[in-house]
Design a protein around this nucleic acid. Structure first.
Lengths: 216, 216
DNA sequence: GTTGGCGAGATTGTATGCAATCCTGCGTAC
DNA sequence: GTACGCAGGATTGCATACAATCTCGCCAAC
């Protein structure tokens, strides 16, 4: 019927999520329901429902009678998330290797080439975007919806650390080699190798993060 | 202050979850907000919030303006869940092997012995309970909160299949051997072996499920 | 007999109001 | 000067009312 029908709460939730994920709302910042409601032109009911969902996603922390605040993800937790992603995306990579057709492999190689190009142009933020695209594409190829869902939730919690790791000295080169190895394994249909390569890759990101910020 | 303060919504949510998980509410059954509210003596607001959370947990399916219904987990999805658990609990088992002290190992061996005893008494439902306890204990030992959280969510979706797999002919014996291998690996502090054993175990449960109900 | 549409009842979506709780700052006692 | 306590404002928790939407049965047209 109406194209704008019922889209309001979704928009509100997305808007909030984006504000948190992009850092416009800082960690630990209080999220006062009535303020958010006013600023987005919706009622508190909508905001409240959105906050409940975002809490489940791990972006927001909620204490009874004290309201919601943007959740601060500690380094320790970020490492846990990367360890978890390592095994989940390892699973996805294994399946992707088993299921990829020639077009899929072509896609992956194109993305890899783009990353290489952007890396040489020192556009590291764009590299990070292509990186996300590459991981996303592998998930799609794997066809594993459960893994995809969990990984998606984990990723949105990681934004604070998204850019930092790629900026570390040497990380970008190393990351490229690791991605190349993953794709080579997928191209030859070697699931075991693809899984191992993906686990190595994400473990090495986790190590880099541990080294960068060893606060506990 | 008051011991019953603010506990109401939590109770409502738990009550609903339990009704779904135990099968008192059947898959695909409609969940009419006002009925649930009346039957639990709370307002629709509470029920609504609970349904939002349960939807996120994957127990409930919600279509706009059409309400919520108990989600039906297909065999295909159950297999996906077990594959996912295999890698997540594999991670946990590896860490558990690295961190377990003698008391932890003692606990695990006790649970294993109980399982053996109950199995010989043919009390397969009790075996299933001990099984859950064993997996839970390994998670605790691993100390990996992120993995624990994800696994918990996955488990609650699996209830429909929880009992069936252990009832399959031969499954109970095989399961015991697999658990023994996991615990042996943990006892010797061999993380790699513990992870491999856990993955083998849950993959074999997944295979059993695929064989039992190859629909989809 | 089938299709289309229309209206009543059922159900969900959203806004708002009031109660409960928490936080802050100020005054008072020691 | 510090600690305590106690308003008063700010904020959240919950219930309810009303609007929007869907479902389903019935009737008419073909």
């Amino acid at each position: 019927m109406l194209d704008k029908a019922g889209v309001v709460p979704q928009r509100a939730e997305d808007h909030l999520r984006e504000a948190i994920v992009t850092g416009r709302l800082q960690p630990n910042e209080r999220l006062v329901e009535s303020d958010l409601a006013r600023s987005m032109g919706v009622s508190r009911t909508i905001v409240r429902a959105a906050l409940v969902r975002l809490e489940h996603e791990g972006l927001v922390e909620h204490e009874r009678h004290r309201g919601a605040r943007v959740r601060l993800v500690s380094v320790r937790e970020a490492v846990e998330i990367l360890e978890t992603r390592a095994v989940l995306e390892g699973l996805a990579a294994r399946l992707a290797a088993q299921r990829a057709d020639v077009d899929d492999v072509e896609d992956l190689k194109t993305i890899l080439a783009d990353m290489q190009r952007l890396r040489e142009a020192d556009d590291l933020l764009a590299v990070s975007d292509e990186n996300a695209k590459l991981h996303r594409r592998l998930l799609d190829i794997s066809g594993h919806e459960t893994a995809a869902r969990l990984i998606g939730a984990l990723n949105s919690q990681m934004v604070r650390f998204q850019y930092r790791t790629i900026l570390l000295p040497g990380r970008s080169e190393r990351s490229f080699a690791e991605h190349a190895e993953i794709i080579a394994a997928v191209a030859t249909g070697d699931g075991e190798r693809a899984e191992a390569a993906m686990r190595t890759h994400l473990s090495s990101v986790a190590d880099a993060l541990r080294r960068e910020a060893p606060e506990s």
